[in-house]
Structures are given as C-alpha cells and as structure tokens.
C-alpha cells in the first residue's frame, strides 16, 4: 500500500505550529512509517502535488498566501486550518486596525533604522503584494477541519492526524481544547 501524502505550509504565521508538529516527538517515526511529506518546510519541496492531507498554518496576508492556499486546496483531499492565525488571522491580523499606508510607511520609509533615500515603497514583482487586511484562511478556500490553539498542542495535532489515518472524523476531547 502506498504511503499517504501530507503537505504543510506556513502562510502569515510564525512557524510555531510547525514546531508543535515536530513536538509529536517519537511519534514522527510512527508517522514516517505510514506517511511521507510533500511540499513542506520539512522537505523544502516548492510545489504541492496530489496529497491526502494539507496542514496550513497562518492567515492570509498577501497575494502569494492566496495562491499557495489555493494550490493546497487544489491538491489536498483534506485541508486543516492549524492554529489561531489560520483560524482567526491571529497576531498578524493586529495590523487590521492600522491603515496599510501607515504599515508600509513604518516598514519602508519612517521606521527606526530605515534608510530609503528614494522614499518609495518597493515595487519588485518578487515581493508578494499585501492585502489591505489579514484574513482567516476559511475566508478564501473551503477548510475541512480546524485545530485551535496557539500553537495547537502536539497531542491535538497527533490526534487529528491519527484520526484521519484511521479514517475517523477528527475529534478533540475537552481536555485537548482546554488551555488554562
């Protein structure tokens, strides 16, 4: 039987959720026995191929995020929103209360230590263009499952993955959703 394929990505996130994925520790061996990674920071594969599970960390803050997210949706049978930023926009969405023009000015023109004699905002097509607000990923594509937490605990991530591997609907117990 061929291994199931998993892809992961971090959009507007901090990679903290990916750290939490690695935190499943020795279960990574169990996972490696039945699954292999497609596009993911773990493999450094740049384009996502057909996958069984996609795990997305972070919200959507720029045009590239939208494209990557759509690529994941196109290729992954099941797409999981992993963590607070993917589900709500999280910390990056704190900029939503600040007009984009002020964000850009702070970053490229007036920020302490910024040297920009031309006083222009970069226009290189290599740089993803920012959306005026940061959005949760379910506002752009259909999401099948949501893993809350900042980051979601490793046990919760493992629970969700092993449920999916076993063909079950992922369910988290109350203690896995209780953070205080």
């Amino acid at each position: 039987m061929s291994k199931i394929r998993i892809a992961t990505t971090s959009l507007a996130g901090c990679f903290g959720c990916h750290m939490s994925i690695l935190d499943i520790d020795e279960k990574l061996f169990d996972l490696a026995a039945v699954a292999e990674f497609d596009r993911s920071p773990i493999t450094d594969i740049k384009q996502c191929g057909p996958c069984d599970i996609g795990i997305v960390e972070g919200g959507v803050c720029n045009a590239e995020n939208v494209e990557v997210l759509r690529e994941f949706r196109r290729h992954c049978k099941v797409l999981i929103a992993c963590g607070a930023c993917a589900i709500t926009g999280g910390i990056p969405a704190l900029r939503n209360g600040v007009p984009l023009v002020e964000c850009m000015a702070e970053a490229y023109l007036d920020g302490i230590g910024t040297e920009n004699p031309s006083r222009t905002v970069p226009n290189d097509p290599e740089l993803p263009l920012l959306l005026n607000r940061v959005h949760p990923i379910q506002e752009v594509v259909r999401i099948d499952h949501f893993l809350p937490g900042c980051p979601p605990p490793a046990e919760a991530i493992w629970q969700a993955i092993s449920d999916l591997l076993a063909g079950r609907e992922p369910t988290l117990s109350y203690t896995q959703l209780h953070y205080d």
Binding site: A63, V66, T120, N123, P128, N132, R133, Q138
Partner: peptide
C-alpha cells in the same frame, strides 16, 4: 465556497502604494 471578500480589491491599496500592476499584483 467563494472568498468572503473581493480579493482583487483587497490588493488595490498596495498596488497604488507600490505602483505595481503586473500579473502577480492581481487575483
């Protein structure tokens, strides 16, 4: 699902600030 907001319009401000209008500046 459809996007919950107008994707291309959400880039308009950044397009104006950067002066870009290339293919990657639209959705």
């Amino acid at each position: 699902v459809m996007p919950a907001f107008d994707l291309d319009a959400a880039l308009a401000e950044a397009r104006a600030l950067s002066g870009r209008d290339d293919a990657h500046a639209h959705l």
